[in-house]
């Protein structure tokens, strides 16, 4: 019974969102506002239960680890974002956030730069490595703006443009695929879970 009712509600909201394809209307606006409200309403108690209780309340009030008061106070400085005069206080917790980013630099450098470079320096013994080599070099040259893209140099950078266009095409193809998949998911729900037409 509960499943039937929840499926009806979900189907109504799905169709309300789809109705935007015809034109903007109150059903669409209602479903959109409901989504935002429900997401926030759902997240607040969950975060309270999973963050505030185990990481602030329990250690301070039950386990008497009073040192936790310091980071809790620091976190509360974020609230001053809403004040015009004391907004600068919110920068202090941001500074700590930046420190974490600093910590990630050496490891990010390893995985996103060094390992990538090592893989781009393989012996050119097949068509794939040859393509990777030509693509990497020509695209890097394209982004070298201290020299005018003219003559032979311009022709080489043009090859880089072709590589990038193919890359964008592949990305766009995947994007279309993803969007169609989402539509398939919703139609599977409407036809299968709601109407029971897919077995």
């Amino acid at each position: 019974m509960f499943e039937t009712i929840s499926n009806f509600v979900a189907a109504f909201l799905t169709l309300s969102i789809f109705s935007f394809l015809y034109k903007d209307n109150p059903f669409y606006k209602f479903a959109e506002a409901l989504l935002v409200g429900v997401s926030m309403g759902y997240a607040i108690p969950l975060v309270y239960e999973n963050v505030f209780m185990p990481y602030v309340y329990t250690p301070i009030f039950l386990n008497h680890k009073f040192i936790i008061i310091l980071p809790a106070l620091l976190g509360m400085l974020y609230m001053f974002r809403f004040s015009k005069n004391l907004g600068w206080l919110s920068r202090y917790p941001i500074v700590f956030g930046m420190a974490i980013i600093g910590m990630s630099i050496p490891m990010s450098l390893h995985s996103s730069v060094l390992v990538q470079m090592r893989s781009a320096m393989l012996p050119i013994d097949n068509i794939n490595t040859a393509l990777i080599f030509i693509g990497t070099v020509t695209i890097l040259l394209y982004f070298f703006f201290s020299k005018a893209h003219k003559g032979v140099y311009g022709k080489v950078t043009n090859v880089g443009i072709w590589f990038m266009m193919i890359g964008f095409g592949a990305s766009f193809g995947y994007t279309v695929m993803a969007r169609v998949s989402l539509l398939i998911g919703r139609i599977q729900f409407l036809l299968g879970d709601w109407l029971g037409l897919i077995k």
Partner: peptide, 17 residues
């Protein structure tokens, strides 16, 4: 990953990470 994110993840697949 969703299809839209595949291209972003490919370099890490190619490097074996």
């Amino acid at each position: 990953v969703t299809a839209v994110m595949v291209a972003d993840n490919y370099p890490y697949l190619q490097t074996g990470q």
